[in-house]
């Protein structure tokens, strides 16, 4: 049962992502069921739920790393179909940060950041490098620019991955469990960068279990289970007064410690 989304705050802008009755199967396994989701510009959404609930699959559908079988996904007014041109247009506007960073190990940090601007946006190399340095400063690792990813710690790698996405100047950022593969002492440095992004008004969808982060920056928290959206609410109400028994159980499990 889906509770109504909280009325959007006045500051939020037009719709960026609209998902309408999305259904997806892996073979005969029904992973996403009747998902409806509307994301406005500047919204910061945290998606949580037990593993296997379909939350990662959902955000991977948004930039078509996974294809869906029913329903529509519209990003920035463009509907996602098989059309590779639309897919590429959308991917260029949607940044993504992965659980396992997925930096290119054969390229330096700087080259990781300039690759897409040069080859996709056709930016001049020098300009791309200036932009990259600006974002590397923003994630606080400009001094690592000429190292290879293998020489950095997990936290540093994830910050490079964020900078790499930002270099494409995306309108939306997707985060797929960005801190799950990190050692505890490195989680804070990555979350700091994400909080900074949120404060600058970036539209964000984060799959994460960092409930502190959700309380601090999200204006909506979505709980998924069994491939469906069970409950969504503003963080305050979501955490203090969960409506659904599943949500209560989940929160009690992860907040126990």
């Amino acid at each position: 049962m889906t509770t109504d989304a909280p009325t959007a705050s006045a500051e939020l802008g037009e719709t960026v992502i609209n998902i309408d009755r999305l259904n997806k199967w892996y073979g005969q396994f029904h992973v996403l069921k009747d998902i409806d989701l509307n994301v406005k510009r500047g919204e910061r959404i945290v998606i949580c739920g037990p593993s296997g609930s379909g939350k990662s699959t959902l955000i991977r559908c948004i930039n078509r790393l996974e294809s869906h079988q029913e329903g529509t996904i519209t990003v920035d007014g463009i509907e996602l179909t098989e059309d590779t041109k639309h897919i590429n247009d959308i991917r260029r506007e949607v940044g993504m940060v992965f659980q396992h960073f997925n930096l290119f190990p054969h390229l330096t940090v700087l080259e990781n950041c300039t690759l897409a601007p040069i080859w996709v946006r056709k930016t001049a190399k020098k300009e791309a490098e200036e932009i990259a340095m600006r974002y590397l400063e923003r994630v606080k690792i400009p001094e690592q620019a000429n190292k290879y990813p293998g020489q950095l710690s997990g936290g540093q790698q994830q910050r490079v991955a964020i900078a790499r996405s930002l270099c494409m100047n995306p309108r939306v950022m997707l985060f797929d469990e960005p801190t799950s593969a990190l050692d505890p002492e490195m989680i804070a440095e990555v979350l700091d960068v994400m909080v900074g992004l949120a404060e600058d008004g970036m539209t964000m969808l984060c799959v994460t279990h960092e409930m502190g982060f959700a309380r601090k920056v999200a204006n909506r928290v979505i709980f998924m289970d069994g491939g469906q959206i069970v409950e969504q609410n503003e963080p305050e109400a979501f955490f203090n007064n969960p409506q659904n028994e599943r949500t209560q159980l989940f929160l009690s499990q992860i907040l126990q410690h």
Binding site: M1, W25, Q28, H30, Q228, A237, N241, Q243, N244, Q248
Partner: peptide, 22 residues
């Protein structure tokens, strides 16, 4: 807000559209 619990009602699994499997 009232403390009113709602039950979790799972949407039943449907078979994948015939055009995508088989």
């Amino acid at each position: 807000m009232t403390d009113q619990n709602s039950q979790f009602v799972p949407i039943p699994d449907r078979p994948a559209p015939a055009t995508t499997v088989g």
